[in-house]
Design a protein around this nucleic acid. Sequence first.
DNA 1: AAATGGATTCGCCATAAAGGAGAGTGCACA
DNA 2: TGTGCACTCTCCTTTATGGCGAATCCATTT
Lengths: 202, 202
Amino acid sequence: MTGQLGPQDLPILAKAGYYLALRVGFAFPLEEINALPSAWVELYTAERLMLQDPVIRWVYTNTGTIRWSEICDDDPGDVMRKAREFGMRYGLCVAVSDPVDEGQRSFGSFARPDREFMDDEINLLSDFVARTHRAKAPPTNVTLAEIEALRMVKQGKRLKEIAYQLGVSEGAVKQRLKNAKLKLGAKTGAQAAALASQFGLI
Amino acid sequence: MTGQLGPQDLPILAKAGYYLALRVGFAFPLEEINALPSAWVELYTAERLMLQDPVIRWVYTNTGTIRWSEICDDDPGDVMRKAREFGMRYGLCVAVSDPVDEGQRSFGSFARPDREFMDDEINLLSDFVARTHRAKAPPTNVTLAEIEALRMVKQGKRLKEIAYQLGVSEGAVKQRLKNAKLKLGAKTGAQAAALASQFGLI
DNA sequence: AAATGGATTCGCCATAAAGGAGAGTGCACA
DNA sequence: TGTGCACTCTCCTTTATGGCGAATCCATTT
């Protein structure tokens, strides 16, 4: 396999499921993609395995890639054994951080039932997480005025109302949202508000 | 102080800052409110203290309330001492879960520099977290068709495009969004999409 | 089988809101 | 003295919203 992975390749490569936590900041990620077996998710949630999970511990304290089998860490909650019962026998962790912005990191965990991940697969997945991490980088050039307007759109306010409350003309609000849409790459105000929300801007 | 707390009361009661994680599911919350000192947030993020934080460990493994001083847990990362240097000397944890839906929990951590939280304050804060948890409960009566439409609105698609891709009339899409707005308590499509996104429905 | 109620779809209309293009104004900064 | 940038305004088009009635489909009840 050569070239770059896309999201559509993940189910094939990570046959037993995968999990992505994108842009983890203070404690939690801006976005999470959970394609793990739903029965496992239920158990993991109910038993609150996160804090005991050696995989989570590894990605929080390291950067790079590692096979689950190579993680040298206690597993008091027996999380890895439990995971095996859901088909997640062999796995890979990826943790990346942006060299220019160490504040946010992204994690990926990929599982398969049949064999270890091979070196070139690891490279592909690592590259995929790194690219996704960069792609989800919040834009830095959105002005405070634009963010204000986006926040009020998200709150369900009309342009007229926003203009009145901000003390500017409706045209100005339109202009702000237009700029915000451009910077966020959004086609509509709804999308812009959702994106800004996802980026943690509002 | 009697009655119920509102968000505006928190800065007074938790003078040194507070943090709310609402509706924690698989691993992460649907919504997070972070009113901790920004210098502390930076340190906490940079040193990735979450996994070592006795407060986090407590709220993930317990339900109820506890003063920080009463948490009997190792603190290998010296997190509590570091927190004191940012004015967070006395603190309170609250962890709640919905009796009918154990799947999601909410946490709160409140800090002040001068004295322990008093019993009646603990009751008020506990009640506040429980009420906020309930208030953020995702609606369960939104249909799949409505969610589909909301997802496409969030993606910046126009009604005409949505109708075409779903193979229904534009009027049907309008009706779906109208119902969705009603169920979500949203005034506009933008707000409905943002709420659905926040609720993890899309 | 027939009737009932609920949810969904659809078309039509009128109005409100949002989106887009262009031009002008004021302001800070190099 | 330009050069960006944010703000404002106008004019026009497109889109969204809301109300209404009718048709359809489904499951449940009678």
